[in-house]
């Protein structure tokens, strides 16, 4: 079966959406600085669009944990991202995060290399750690934050730093040393795709935790599967949809496997359609 036509691929829309989000985050300091248009302010720690306030859940949580006080506007700002994560899981990571934009861009550029292109683009993981590490990264982050008494992820969060360094460059004409975090995160992509997102990102862990019972999941139809395992090579998160892991907490709904599947065995479904069963390693035997 041939590949899906260009505009029918979901990943195209994902790339366009990532690009749009990246342009908003990077372009916003310019509009603020040169034209004084304050319609959009901030970056992914807290984004203000008109009267809408969006506060990132982990940063907001850390602020509450360390200050030990609630502030209503901050809680209200967390409503939108939490609802989004409840409905669709880690879509922030795969559809909006500027780090994901830069990572996929690196992958695409690596794919342009003649001869080695496809091999580099879908490179096998050199470093493999247990996926559970994600939860411990979250717990470690929260514990460190509370021991020190000051929120930590607020200043080293890589998606936030992309916006912040752009803002620093535009406003104060210099870049701070924190840019190293972004560089390291992007370099970690080389041995294992999305190494940081998979194992270490506390924000991703928060969103994954919230999105554990998400509505939007990728359904695996065992009767249609021909066992070509293309999806396993394409998945940037190192999940194996071919053994029914597509509904696990670690999936971030990026639709790479949906587009790669030659027989449409993997498809987006809303959970309320009632065709989804609890994912397990023995999914092959379970009749859907």
């Amino acid at each position: 079966m041939a590949r899906k036509s260009f505009w029918k691929r979901i990943t195209i829309w994902r790339y366009l959406f990532l690009l749009a989000c990246f342009i908003v985050i990077v372009g916003n300091p310019f509009t603020n600085y040169y034209w004084n248009i304050n319609f959009i302010q901030g970056w992914f720690q807290s984004l203000g669009v008109g009267n809408l306030w969006v506060v990132s859940p982990l940063e907001g949580l850390e602020s509450i944990l360390t200050a030990k006080a609630f502030y209503m506007p901050s809680l209200i700002g967390m409503v939108v991202p939490v609802t989004l994560a409840f409905l669709m899981g880690r879509v922030f990571c795969s559809w909006m995060c500027p780090i994901e934009f830069l990572s996929f861009l690196t992958d695409k550029i690596l794919g342009l290399i003649p001869k080695w292109g496809t091999k580099l683009k879908y490179r096998p993981d050199l470093i493999r750690l247990p996926k559970k590490l994600l939860w411990f990264a979250l717990v470690t982050e929260l514990m460190l934050t509370m021991i020190i008494g000051y929120p930590l992820f607020v200043w080293w969060s890589p998606p936030g730093l992309v916006g912040r360094e752009t803002m620093f460059y535009v406003f104060y004409k210099h870049i701070t040393v924190e840019i190293a975090v972004v560089v390291v995160v992007l370099l970690l992509n080389l041995p294992t795709r999305r190494f940081f997102c998979r194992y270490l990102c506390p924000l991703g862990a928060t969103l994954a935790l919230i999105g554990k019972w998400r509505q939007l999941v990728i359904r695996y139809d065992a009767s249609k599967c021909v066992g070509c395992k293309v999806c396993d090579t394409r998945c940037p998160m190192g999940i194996k949809p071919s053994v029914g892991e597509s509904q696990s907490v670690y999936c971030w709904n990026c639709a790479e496997c949906v587009d790669a599947c030659p027989t449409n065995a993997l498809q987006f479904t809303w959970r309320d359609k009632g065709v989804i069963k609890v994912p397990s390693a023995s999914m092959k035997e379970v009749k859907l």
Partner: peptide
């Protein structure tokens, strides 16, 4: 510094 989430707004 406990409350501020460094959003730069």
């Amino acid at each position: 510094a406990q409350k501020c989430i460094r959003c730069g707004r």
